[in-house]
């Protein structure tokens, strides 16, 4: 059991009548990147606030590196690095002052731990004398990450670090995370972007305060229970409503310029779908066998939960 870094069992949290966490359990191994994937309102922030000892659970247990989130909160805080979803550094302090402040409260030696943040901090070092409030979004993010790392935490918890961030910056942020992982830091990260799931070692798909599925991205994708086809088209909406009327179809959804359709029975194959489309005059559109992605799985789990 020594390889488990973060552990949660039956965690429940309610805000009045709102059930933010409905008894979730999970475990994160040492040194892995574990992603909590889900939309706003899934319970990701509540979970992270419990794990960082900022919020008490109504029921259930959780520990980080063997320290209990309630009983051992004082010690736990010294081994955690936390980057909340909202920029929460001191806007009136400069870049440098923020870093010194965070190093100071953790009694950390900046020069000793500088190697951890070097690659990130070097990019904002030219603005060391600028107030944090005056930085661009990308630079704020790099400063927040530097401050969360400067005491050399064993576990880094990042709440939606890439929300509202453009596709290029998102990619760069993930490259940074993967380099941090190689330093041996366990990383918990939450995101509403389904495409980031495959960058994690393991993930939990979350919705409405529950974990719908967890495992490696490959495990989740290969457990997709239907045969899946994709059709490339320029006439998305027309084709979508046509396919949804076909017998033997389980679901059809837009995926960029493709439509993904899953079939409900073994009799409905590529031939049958192709013929159905030709009968309605769609001759250019050819169904092909497709591998389900995390987003296909997420949608399928959501539908399962709605009907079940």
């Amino acid at each position: 059991m020594t390889d488990i870094s973060v552990y949660g069992e039956g965690l429940v949290k309610n805000y009045g009548k709102t059930e933010a966490l409905r008894g979730i359990s999970f475990s994160v191994n040492k040194g892995e990147i574990f992603g909590f994937i889900g939309p706003d309102g899934a319970g990701k922030t509540t979970l992270f606030r419990i794990l960082t000892t900022l919020l008490l659970p109504d029921a259930g247990d959780a520990s980080v590196e063997g320290f209990h989130v309630v009983k051992d909160f004082r010690h736990l805080r010294t081994i955690l690095g936390y980057m909340p979803g909202r920029f929460s550094l001191y806007q009136d302090l400069t870049v440098e002052e923020n870093l010194k402040f965070f190093a100071g409260i953790f009694k950390a030696d900046i020069s000793k731990n500088y190697h951890l943040i070097k690659e990130i901090y070097d990019q904002i070092a030219p603005f060391a004398k600028r107030r944090a409030g005056k930085l661009s979004g990308g630079m704020k993010q790099k400063l927040a990450l530097s401050c969360a790392l400067i005491h050399k935490p064993e576990v880094l918890i990042l709440d939606e670090p890439t929300t509202g961030v453009d596709a290029v910056s998102r990619r760069e942020f993930w490259e940074m995370l993967i380099r941090l992982k190689s330093q041996g830091i366990t990383i918990l990260v939450s995101t509403p972007y389904m495409d980031e799931a495959i960058l994690c070692d393991r993930v939990a798909l979350m919705q409405h305060g529950s974990i719908m599925a967890s495992g490696t991205p490959d495990e989740i994708m290969s457990s997709y229970p239907h045969r899946l086809f994709k059709i490339s088209t320029d006439r998305t909406l027309e084709l979508l409503s046509l396919i949804r009327k076909m017998n033997g179809i389980h679901s059809a959804e837009m995926f960029g310029s493709d439509i993904h359709l899953s079939v409900a029975d073994a009799e409905t194959g590529i031939e049958e779908v192709g013929e159905y489309l030709r009968n309605y005059g769609f001759t250019a559109e050819k169904p092909e066998e497709a591998k389900p992605g995390i987003e296909d799985c997420f949608i399928d789990f959501m539908k399962l939960n709605q009907t079940g």
């Binding site: 509202g164 509403p192 919705q207 987003e295 997420f298």
Partner: peptide
């Protein structure tokens, strides 16, 4: 932003 994949569609 931040919306589930079904609602997004």
């Amino acid at each position: 932003g931040g919306v589930d994949p079904i609602t997004r569609r």
